[in-house]
Write a protein that binds this DNA or RNA. Structure first.
Length: 577
RNA sequence: CGGGGUGUAACGCAGUUGGUAGCGUGCAUGGUUUGGGACCAUGAUGUCGGGAGUUCGAGCCUCUUCACCCCGACCA
């Protein structure tokens, strides 16, 4: 490919609104073009990267016996009505009608389609297990797209679905896929990624993992044990909070007047105490009937809404206004003498504290010396609080939990029989008895992966693409396109290198070196060959790596060979044994 | 969905009190240059997001509508 005819413009500036480096560089380098909110076109550069990533994914999926298939983007609503998700999914799923008025949906995931495809052919246990996957466009009408390719509405995704005759077999395959994912992310050049236990949400099923790229711009928060021998890692949403309270002295239950003291900070200052001795009330409402839920939690901790949602198995939202009729006194809620019409939950962070301070359910009043067992009775404690920096690791028991941000680059779920049951997919076992297959599902967002790689590997001049995914392996920079000798050497290399199997970009434009190098940095090709009159005067060309860690001058006749050595060396970095 | 903001040339932006649109980059042509975004000269490019209104006159004022961006809620 010659740069003179490569479609896509390199820009010096982008709008200051764009805060994320990868987005800025991919817009500046002519990789992507915004078409609408959360919708992008790919220029050749991005499409080439996408293709290389897809091929790595295909190789690894095929290696674990995946079979590539293709599901439709547009599906009849009836398919989604069968599983029930037509009703349970909200506005995120795009729905429309065809000319005859039939309801259609745009695919946002393909569990239903996979069951539909497999259900009438996989009728005997002898055909199991199997995994089918596709690489295809999805549409999710996200409330708010952001961050370039990090969170979009339309995107290319690899999604796979496996079918098994036993939980053990699913688990065996699940961990094979786990390893395949690990290989994929290593091969595309990511370094700082981890797999974490995740909340499986409303997908159904129990065990799930997310592969996360650790980066400050990540939208998820991860709890990671800093003891490397332990290795505990979880999405904050799913991380168990372990609290080891020191009992403290048993005190008498007393009311204290606390006029207008409403916040935790105010109360700590007013009573000269620590938030760890406080019992805080957080009020939620259940979406379906607006009934209240009060969660009592230790004063220094927050409620993890995902855990609460999972415990209640209901959608909730934070209560905006607490009405007096409900019997709840805003700002002064406490377990003792609570008369509100609400479900009351106790977080496990309150276990073992002998004397708590809480609201007294009266205006401007708190109680001290509250002992839950003595003053309330036996209560059930539930783990509902958010894990925090320095918390006790649920695995090794040491106070070594650290919090990091991450971008989700892939996820794997053990689905169970949610879809096979709801869509009535069965096979017969050895005893000729009908059974529901047990499913797993496995996803990777390709576009997000491109942005993630760029995010992890760039400098202020442009992306530094790993050779395994780079749009081109080598760029030839012709520093004097009006010099016959320079042209001749460039043209020769441009013939030779592709024949050796390399993807070559040739900057043949008659522009000044500064502009050419600036563009070359935006192209981010791992290897650069610079041909100039200055070098040719000594009979050499210059070969450098994009990350600027390596530079060598070689005679023209040895240039191609040197490129090969360098490419092999770079490829080694991303090779998996 | 709530809060804030922006729409003017391909990109980034300016545009005063309402008087008929400009700067930088890029692009085209010619010339001088040539190792980190050169210089000179000449030139082309506008539905000022759309619609309606006020006015002798609207990029600017009013109404309306659309799109996009940022923060939050949400994120199967």
């Amino acid at each position: 490919m010659k740069v003179s005819s490569l479609l896509g413009e390199r820009l010096k500036t982008v709008s200051d609104d764009i805060a994320i480096e990868s987005q800025s560089l991919m817009l500046r380098g002519g990789y992507i073009k915004n078409v609408g909110n959360g919708i992008y076109s790919f220029y050749p550069l991005a499409q080439r990267i996408s293709r290389k990533i897809q091929n790595i994914i295909r190789q690894e999926m095929d290696a674990i016996d995946g079979q590539e298939v293709l599901f439709p983007v547009v599906m009849p609503a009836s398919l989604w009505q069968e599983s029930g998700r037509y009703y349970s999914i909200g506005a995120e799923m795009a729905r429309f009608k065809d000319r005859s008025g039939a309801d259609l949906v745009l695919g946002m995931t393909h569990e239903e389609a996979s069951v539909h495809l497999a259900k009438n052919t996989a009728k005997s246990y002898t055909q199991y297990p199997f995994m089918i996957y596709q690489i295809q466009t999805k549409f999710r009408d996200e409330a708010r797209a952001r961050g370039g390719l990090i969170r979009v509405r339309e995107f290319t995704m690899k999604d796979g679905y496996s079918f098994h005759t036993s939980q053990e077999d699913l688990e065996k395959y699940y961990y094979r896929c786990f390893d395949a994912y690990d290989r994929i992310f290593k091969r595309v050049g990511l370094k700082n990624f981890v797999a974490v236990k995740s909340d499986s949400g409303m997908m159904g099923g129990s065990v799930s993992h997310e592969f996360m790229l650790l980066t400050p711009i990540g939208e998820d928060t991860l709890a990671i044990c800093s003891d490397e021998k332990c290795g505990y890692r979880a999405n904050m949403e799913a991380a168990q909070t372990v609290v080891n309270n020191i009992g403290g002295e048993v005190e008498e239950l007393k009311e204290v007047s606390t006029p207008s003291v409403k916040t935790i900070d105010d109360l700590c200052a007013f009573l000269k105490t620590d938030a760890k001795k406080l019992c805080k009330a957080v009020v939620y409402q259940i979406n379906e009937d607006d009934s209240y839920v009060v969660v009592f939690v230790r004063g220094d901790l927050e409620v993890n809404e995902t855990k609460l949602r999972n415990y209640l198995k209901k959608e909730i939202h934070k209560a905006q206004e607490i009405t007096v009729e409900s019997g709840i006194v805003a700002g002064f809620i406490g377990p003792k003498d609570f008369k509100g019409k609400a479900k009351v939950l106790y977080d496990s962070s309150l276990i073992g504290i002998n004397s708590l301070i809480s609201g007294a359910n009266k205006n401007d009043t708190h109680v001290t010396g509250l002992n839950i067992e003595r003053d309330i009775g036996k209560v059930e404690y539930v783990d509902l609080s958010k894990i925090y920096e320095g918390a006790i690791c649920p695995k090794c028991g040491k106070p070594t939990i650290t919090l990091s941000n991450g971008i989700e680059i892939g996820n794997i779920f053990q689905l169970g029989t949610k879809y096979s049951k709801s869509m009535n997919m069965t096979y017969v076992d050895e005893n000729n008895t009908p059974q529901y297959p047990i499913m797993g599902c496995y996803g990777i967002g390709v576009g997000r992966l491109i942005a993630s790689i760029c995010e992890e590997s760039h400098d202020k001049f442009g992306p530094i693409w790993p050779i395994s995914v780079a749009p081109f392996d080598v760029e030839i920079c012709n520093l004097r396109a009006d010099d016959d000798e320079v042209n001749k050497v460039c043209e020769e290399l441009y013939e030779t290198l592709p024949r050796m199997g390399y993807d070559v970009l040739y900057d043949d434009r008659n522009i000044r070196p500064g502009s050419m190098f600036a563009d070359a940095d935006l192209f981010g090709c791992p290897i650069r060959v610079i041909v100039s009159p200055k070098n040719l005067a000594n009979g050499v060309v210059e070969i450098v790596t994009r990350d600027k860690s390596f530079r060598i001058e070689k005679p023209v006749s040895e240039a191609a060979e040197q490129v090969m050595f360098l490419a092999i060396k770079l490829e080694q970095e991303y090779k998996i044994k």
